[in-house]
Amino acid sequence: MPQKDPCQKQACAIQKCLQANKYMESMCEEVIRNMRRCCEVHRGNSTCCSGFKDSKPTENKTET
């Protein structure tokens, strides 16, 4: 029996949110962040992450 994709829940949440908000990404920033976090953890184990691209660069933390 194949294992469930560890980030499938987050990928489905993105689709649901986008559909509910007429595909306005700005309305789904939190679920997109959750997907990014999941992909960071499960990079090699999630087929959902293979097609997930960051549209925005990651935040750079700079110290002054």
Results as ranks from 00 to 15, higher is better:
12 C>F: 06
41 V>M: 13
42 H>E: 12
38 C>A: 11
37 R>E: 08
18 L>F: 05
20 A>F: 04
3 Q>A: 14
34 N>K: 14
23 Y>Q: 08
13 A>I: 01
37 R>T: 03
27 M>P: 01
58 T>I: 04
17 C>H: 03
32 I>F: 06
38 C>M: 10
44 G>A: 07
34 N>C: 12
2 P>I: 07
13 A>N: 09
54 D>K: 15
48 C>F: 06
51 G>N: 14
3 Q>H: 02
56 K>Y: 11
27 M>Y: 10
29 E>A: 13
14 I>G: 01
24 M>I: 14
9 K>P: 00
9 K>A: 13
9 K>G: 02
64 T>D: 09
12 C>L: 13
14 I>E: 06
56 K>V: 11
19 Q>Y: 06
52 F>L: 12
14 I>K: 04
5 D>C: 01
32 I>A: 08
59 E>L: 15
29 E>C: 09
24 M>A: 14
8 Q>D: 07
61 K>W: 14
10 Q>V: 00
59 E>I: 15
40 E>H: 06
31 V>L: 02
37 R>V: 04
46 S>G: 05
26 S>T: 05
20 A>M: 11
33 R>G: 11
51 G>D: 14
8 Q>P: 00
52 F>G: 00
52 F>E: 03
21 N>T: 08
54 D>C: 08
22 K>V: 06
6 P>C: 11
58 T>R: 13
9 K>F: 05
32 I>Q: 12
55 S>D: 12
40 E>A: 06
